[in-house]
Design a protein around this nucleic acid. Structure first.
Length: 275
DNA sequence: CTTTCGTCCTGACTGC
DNA sequence: TGCAGTCAGGACGAAA
């Protein structure tokens, strides 16, 4: 479930391996994921020099040559691995890039919720997938004042609002649960009821949860690359996510961590600590 | 306009 | 053991 910290860890690991290299072979093993690949993608990749790697929300942006950007989204099951050319393609390896040092980068995505697109450098910010994204939660401009103003009048639960990428970019189900837990806010609370004080707490909780997760990604694997070549995933200890029935780590309430369904997704929380 | 819901996909898991 | 059923999730687009 790659969310911002996992995507950022993939970006960093990938940057160490591919930035500055040239693609000598690009193999597309199918023509689409969530949507069709852009026209002539293989031709654009083949021979391209790889520049800087950026991230916007859950999207990875890879600069190609002087004026191109490769856009990657890992969806739900997307993974990137680093290996050598001797390894045969595995099932669901949809894009395989061979670099000029014989490193092979594989984009693997069984459920195919991921996305690959190509955009001109100057038009990246106006790309339909990026243009409407909300602010980066780790930037200084993302703060309690912004959150409070954005949630004012919204008659949706705070949980759903934080999953809306137009409000803030990069949060998914796991980190929304964790941030609400840390902020002491009930996931069922209406977004409109988050005033400035609660919004300040929420902003701080989101930032600290994400920052700690990114740090865990960077420290848990050598140079962000695991022994099997996989980038970006790491062992992490969630306070509430996936812990239905377990004791809440912050208090000794009898009920422990509850799980409820909100708009078809599981929400984990502590009813005592989160109001 | 706002908000909710169905849809895509396959692997992991549950229960009979 | 095997198989059917359920669940997981990001983001879009349709529906209300």
């Amino acid at each position: 479930m790659p969310e911002l910290p996992e995507v950022e860890t993939v970006r960093r690991g990938l940057a160490l391996k591919i930035s500055g290299r040239r693609i000598v072979r690009a193999e597309l093993r199918r023509l689409d994921l969530r949507r069709p690949f852009p026209p002539a993608l293989a031709e654009r990749l083949d021979g391209a020099q790889i520049g800087a790697l950026g991230r916007r929300g859950k999207y990875i942006l890879i600069e190609l040559d002087a004026d191109g950007v490769l856009l990657l989204h890992l969806g739900m099951s997307g993974r990137v691995t680093v290996g050598n050319a001797a390894l045969p393609a595995a099932p669901h390896d949809h894009m395989v890039l061979t670099l000029d040092d014989d490193t092979v980068i594989r984009f693997n995505d069984p459920r195919r919720f991921g996305l690959i697109d190509y955009v001109r450098r100057g038009e990246a910010a106006r790309h339909p997938l990026l243009a409407r994204l909300g602010p980066e939660p780790l930037e200084a401009s993302f703060d309690g004042a912004y959150i409070a103003s954005k949630l004012a009048g919204k008659l949706t639960p705070i949980k759903a609002a934080l999953l809306d990428q137009r409000i803030v970019a990069g949060l998914g189900n796991i980190y929304v649960c964790e941030a609400l837990y840390r902020a002491g806010l009930s996931p069922k609370r209406l977004a409109a009821s988050i005033g400035r004080r609660r919004a300040d707490r929420l902003a701080a909780a989101i930032k600290s949860v994400l920052t700690e997760a990114i740090a865990a990604g960077g420290s848990s694997v050598r140079d962000y690359v695991q022994a099997d070549g996989e980038l970006g995933y790491f062992q992490h200890h969630w306070a509430v996510y996936g812990r239905e029935g377990e004791p809440c780590p912050g208090c000794n309430c009898a009920e422990g961590v509850r799980r409820i369904a909100q708009s078809g997704r599981s929400t984990f929380y502590c009813a005592k600590r989160q109001r």
